[in-house]
Design a protein around this nucleic acid. Structure first.
Lengths: 326, 326
DNA sequence: TTGTATGCGTTATCAG
DNA sequence: CTGATAACGCATACAA
């Protein structure tokens, strides 16, 4: 069932049907008869052929490091909301935490397939950014600050400052830190930097071996908490770069019967759904993940409308969720 | 940059380049010169044009009710794993819990765009299934049993039986149930049926108002737990259709200072990541979500290879995770 | 083994 | 307002 058959059935030209589909000039009589034929046949235009002509696919490529994560699925949820409201489809590519695959997917998307790309950035080195710059379609980076294309990111540094201040105010002075890979500037570098700077500002020592770096998974907290406690029995608090890592720490402490926060305080970042349900509830930082997806997508769609729009970078705030774990 | 330009640059015909791309007859000399030109130019064939000719997109449409859910994101993760290993892309459509949108997306996908569809089923009435039957591309349903296309589902009924037996064995005889919409046969109907049948088999009464139905969200548990306890102060356990609902119940009980499991036992289904971290850890049922995504996708790809393959339905098992909340 | 010619289903241009 | 007609970029039957 193609446009020619519809045209024949309706007794009009292909062009007329095409105009009907694209709201072009058309008399009401023709409009009606075409509408009737299309309704009867259930005809749907081939998006491939449309794309071949128009160069637009109405598909947005979204690249994420993993899908089964609280924060990421919230962002994707925001993206999907805006896209479907605007008649766009979402092509989702999962790098499974292999940053080198980001480029693969970008190249798969490139020239073909997608009208724009949303990249949930993990490690963005200069080579990768340069590659992105050279794309002929708009790109928006989420979760990392970059000067190059547009981006929306969180105030990771000040979130860490705020959390550390809070810990110190509560009387914790021996604070260990479990972080994640420095390849991730936002989560790996900035949160840790906020912590260290604040500690220094308060003249509190943080020996190098009181900071440990690991993965984005629970295991990171679960395996490194005992290490930290062994090295520094005087520790009275552990700050984790993500809630997921904090969950691992909590799991270990629970198993050992170490009381939170009496013996060790624990805090994280991300305000995952369960933070308020844990006993004690987890003190954490709320980031606006869903909004990040929503705003980033709007930004991309604007650029699609008007490619001349200059790059923007938006920093989203945060909120301290003061619970019982500190 | 298209196939004609490449042909011109390499001094061969378009057909030769096409043969190069599709491993057709070609002399080694031509093969080499074409390879060189393609490498220099970074040429990539237009997948739209390819599709227009071959009718294959190498894209699979995946329809899900929501993305920010533990179980669903695990399934999607499994799907994405297999697809990318096989060179397929994933077009993800999120119905945002509006089952009527499933058909919309199926129709968007239909005839165009995708080679096959994976549907994470919620409410599948006959009309919808009929519509799916009529599609000219293979479909696999995940999470629900259907006789029509192929499907992979969990043994929800016996999981509920197993869990209820366990509760009874532990001495709980006044068990309330918080379920979800009956539109979802697997989660809404079968789990509840397994519970009720088992209670009856043990001659334990379950008055109608000891069973409450609500949404898939935490609020369901959080708001209905007090209602249940008000109606039936004698309750010694609450079984929830999903872990998420159970989390809501736990949140309420914690806030009220009601001890788990001493005063009220709580159990759920789904083995969400946090179940083992809660204090007390949540007794639940492990379903093979990731494997469900993996197997379902393999099934679909097989069908794509050989459309003559008959429909299959696979029932996956479960595992009781006996923790401290009962 | 190679090139020519054709058509996949649209949309855009242009003449009426 | 309408209808021919020419692309869009590719794969393939056919002829060489």
């Amino acid at each position: 069932m193609n446009i020619s058959e519809i045209a024949k059935m309706a007794g009009v030209s292909r062009a007329a049907v095409s105009r009907y589909l694209n709201n072009g000039y058309l008399s009401n009589e023709k409009r009606e008869i075409i509408a009737k034929v299309i309704a009867e046949t259930g005809y749907m235009p081939s998006s491939q052929a449309q794309t071949l002509r128009t160069k637009r696919t109405k598909i947005i490529g979204v690249i994420i490091p993993k899908i089964d994560s609280d924060s990421i699925s919230q962002i994707v949820s925001g993206i999907s909301e805006v896209l479907s409201a605007s008649g766009y489809q979402m092509l989702l590519a999962n790098t499974e935490n292999q940053p080198e695959k980001e480029l693969d997917y970008i190249n798969t998307f490139r020239q073909n397939m997608v009208d724009g790309i949303i990249l949930l950035g993990t490690s963005l080195d200069d080579a990768k950014l340069k590659n992105i710059q050279e794309l002929d379609i708009p790109v928006v980076i989420l979760g990392q600050f970059v000067s190059a294309p547009s981006c929306i990111y969180h105030d990771d540094y000040h979130a860490a400052v705020c959390m550390t201040e809070q810990l110190i105010k509560k009387g914790y002075h021996n604070i260990g830190y479990i972080g994640v890979s420095k390849n991730d500037t936002a989560v790996g570098v900035l949160r840790q930097q906020g912590f260290l700077d604040t500690m220094r500002a308060h003249h509190l020592a943080v020996p190098e071996d009181m900071v440990i770096t690991g993965s984005f998974y629970m295991e990171n907290g679960y395996e490194h908490a005992p290490l930290l406690l062994e090295r520094h029995p005087e520790l009275d608090a552990i700050l984790c770069a993500t809630d997921t890592v904090a969950l691992g720490v909590i799991k270990y402490l629970n198993e050992q019967g170490i009381l939170i926060p009496t013996q060790i305080a624990v805090a994280g970042f991300g305000d995952s759904r369960v933070s308020s349900i844990l006993q004690p509830s987890l003190t954490t930082i709320h980031f606006y993940y869903h909004e990040c997806g929503v705003e980033g997508t709007k930004m991309l769609l604007e650029k699609l409308q008007n490619p001349e729009i200059p790059n923007k970078s938006i920093k989203l705030g945060f909120e301290l969720i003061l619970n019982d774990s500190i």
